[in-house]
């Protein structure tokens, strides 16, 4: 019994049907607790006032926006190397979710930036990088939709995802070079001494866990849909052949 057995669509469907409700419930629980805790039971920041509380949406969304792309990169490589269809379909399923997280990060960032910096948008490196990331997601999704044959589409989007990852890193570096920026440094990190205080940190962790679980449940759900739609295509093709 190995991990690769779940690349069999039936195995994957059986397992995901069983797992999905638990992951989804845990995600809702974490989000409700984390967001309520963050919004109502943490003190206001001494500098930023209550606007800081959008942080509980902004930071996890931004983290997942990047992690979703990394997950797509890994599943694309698995598809290209081991030809597991579920992997390719999971990458396809993750893209719109990742795009949505990117847009949430951008929108909450604009809402946060307006009172803090006095502007909805600035061509700050982090903001610009996320805008570029959104463009990469759009291109990836558009390529999936433009190609009719599912295996061809999986191959082409995988190649695009790998090349795009390299260029996304390059763009991040280029954008940093181009403008030093307003955005504060990373709020959360494991190795830095300067970190947000524990009162903010614990609810933030719960929110991050909630977003990770939300991502997993959305990708599972969408992958199930993609597998069903692929099955429908396969059955129709079989019927046409007589």
């Amino acid at each position: 019994m190995s991990l690769w057995e779940y690349a069999n669509p039936q195995k994957f469907m059986q397992l995901s049907r069983w797992v999905l409700p638990f992951v989804a419930a845990a995600s809702v629980l974490c989000l409700v607790i984390g967001l309520a805790w963050g919004f109502f039971w943490t003190p206001d920041d001494y500098k930023q006032g209550s606007t800081v509380k959008i942080f509980y949406l902004h930071v996890p969304a931004a983290m997942m926006a990047i992690n979703a792309w990394v997950m797509m990169l890994v599943t694309s490589l698995v598809w290209l190397i081991r030809r597991h269809h579920v992997s390719a379909l999971a990458a396809k399923a993750a893209a719109p979710v990742g795009l949505t997280f990117t847009l949430i990060a951008l929108a909450t960032g604009a809402l946060w930036g307006q009172p803090m910096w006095g502007t909805w948008w600035a061509w700050d490196p982090r903001l610009t990088s996320f805008l570029i990331l959104a463009l990469f997601y759009l291109g990836y999704i558009a390529l999936w939709q433009a190609v009719d044959d599912p295996d061809t589409a999986a191959d082409l989007t995988s190649v695009l995802c790998i090349v795009g990852s390299v260029f996304a890193l390059l763009s991040r570096y280029a954008v940093n070079f181009w403008n030093q920026g307003l955005h504060q440094g990373a709020s959360l990190s494991l190795d830095k001494k300067e970190n947000v205080a524990d009162v903010f940190w614990y609810p933030a962790l719960v929110c991050i866990a909630g977003f990770v679980l939300l991502f997993i449940s959305l990708v599972l759900l969408r992958t199930r849909t993609e597998i069903r739609s692929r099955r429908l295509g396969a059955l129709l093709a079989r019927e046409r052949m007589g």
Partner: peptide, 9 residues
């Protein structure tokens, strides 16, 4: 749509 983001750097 595919090429323009790659042109950024």
């Amino acid at each position: 749509l595919l090429v323009l983001p790659l042109y950024v750097p």
